[in-house]
Amino acid sequence: MKNNKSIGVFDSGYGGLTVFKSIAALLPDYNYIYLGDNARSPYGDHTFETVYEYTLECVEWLFAQGCPLVILACNTASAKALRTIQQKVLPLKYPNHRVLGVIRPTAEVIGTYTSSHTIGVMGTRGTVNSDSYPIEIHKFYPELRVIQQSCPMWVPLIENNEHEGEGADYFVQEYVNELLGKAPGLDAILLACTHYPLLIPKIQSYLPADCKLIAQGDIVAESLVAYLNHHPEMETMLTKKGEKRFFTSGDHKVFDKNASIFFDKAVISSRINLKK
C-alpha cells in the first residue's frame, strides 16, 4: 500500500471531513488517506508548541503511508503549525513532500464575498488568538476590516452530536450576537473551523438575510485543483485509483459513526497509535 502515492488529509478530529468531501467531489480519481487525531482533539485550546508537535507527528505518519502531499484541513493546525513545518521541517527532512493549509487559499478569495469591506471570522480560540486570518487577508485585501469571534463551545457541541439540539442554539446565538455587536455593517462571515458547516442552519437563523456565510470546503478544493495544475511534478506522482482510506487515533467505531455525519457517506476506519 505504501507504493500508492495518496493525497493525505489531516484534521484534529472530524471537521476536516467537510473539506475532504469537497476535495473528493472535485477530484474523485485520486487516492486519499484521511487521518483524524480524535484521541487528542480538540486542538483549539492547546498551545502553539503542542499543536505543532501533534500536527507534525500526524503529517509524518501520512508521509510514511506514501503521501507526498498533505492537506491540513484544520484551521488550528494551519494557524499554529503549517509555517514551521513548511519552512523548517520539509527543506531538511522531506524536500520532495509538500504540506498545504486552509488559511491562505481562503484569504486569497475572501474579499470577493463582501460589499461592505467588513468580514467576520468565527473560529476556535487557537485560530483567533493566532491572528492568522487578519494577517493573511490583509496581504491580499489591505482595505478589509476583519472582525474575529472565538466560539469555544461549538466544536465540543458538534463532536458530541449535540449541534442539532435546542441546547446548541444558546451558544450559536451568543457568539453570533457578539460578532454582530462588534461590526454592525458586517455582510460576510467566514466559518474558520471545518467543523462549523454543520451549524450553518442554526447560524443563519440568527443572521441578517443579506449576510453571507462562507464555508471553506469548496474554496480549498478549487485551490488544490489549481495547485496540481501548476505543479505537474506532484500531480503525475499521485496514484489515481479513486481509493479512500480513513484512520483515527481514537475509537474507530465511534469515529465511523460520527464521521458519516460530516462526510455524508458511510465511513470505515482503522485505529492507529500515536506517541502521546
Rank of each mutant, 00 (worst) to 15 (best):
A209T: 13
L228N: 03
K88N: 13
W154Y: 06
Y133H: 01
A168M: 05
I214A: 02
D218G: 02
A64R: 05
E136D: 14
L100F: 11
Y43K: 00
S205L: 09
N160C: 05
L26T: 00
H163C: 03
L238K: 04
E53H: 07
E162V: 09
I200Y: 00
P28E: 07
K244R: 11
L56C: 09
G13P: 15
F255P: 01
P197N: 07
C211G: 03
A221V: 05
S249D: 00
A107Q: 01
Y32M: 01
S269E: 02
L26C: 08
Y30S: 10
G15S: 02
D169L: 15
I268E: 01
L56I: 08
N96A: 14
P42L: 05
R83A: 09
L157Q: 00
Q148V: 15
F247S: 01
R98F: 14
T47F: 15
P152A: 10
N258S: 03
L213C: 07
E159Q: 08
S260E: 00
Q65T: 10
V109G: 06
Q173F: 01
L35C: 08
P91F: 11
S205N: 12
D210P: 14
I119T: 02
N3H: 15
Y14L: 06
T55Q: 07
D218R: 05
P142H: 02
S269M: 06
N96L: 15
V155P: 12
P152G: 14
I147N: 03
P134R: 08
H138L: 12
N38E: 01
G36P: 08
L82S: 04
K80F: 14
M122P: 09
Y30P: 09
L186V: 13
I214V: 10
I203L: 06
Y206P: 11
A192V: 08
R125D: 12
V59Y: 07
A183C: 06
P197Y: 10
S12N: 05
Q148M: 15
P208V: 05
K276A: 11
A183Q: 03
D11T: 12
A192G: 10
K5G: 10
G15F: 10
Y170S: 03
D169Q: 14
R271G: 03
K182S: 03
Y54P: 12
S41K: 14
N38W: 03
R145H: 14
D37F: 12
E49W: 13
I137E: 02
V225C: 09
E49Q: 12
A64Q: 05
I23M: 07
D187H: 06
T239M: 13
E164P: 07
Q65I: 09
E57Q: 04
M1Q: 05
Y54H: 10
S116T: 09
G36H: 04
F10R: 01
A39P: 11
L180Y: 04
G167A: 12
T127L: 15
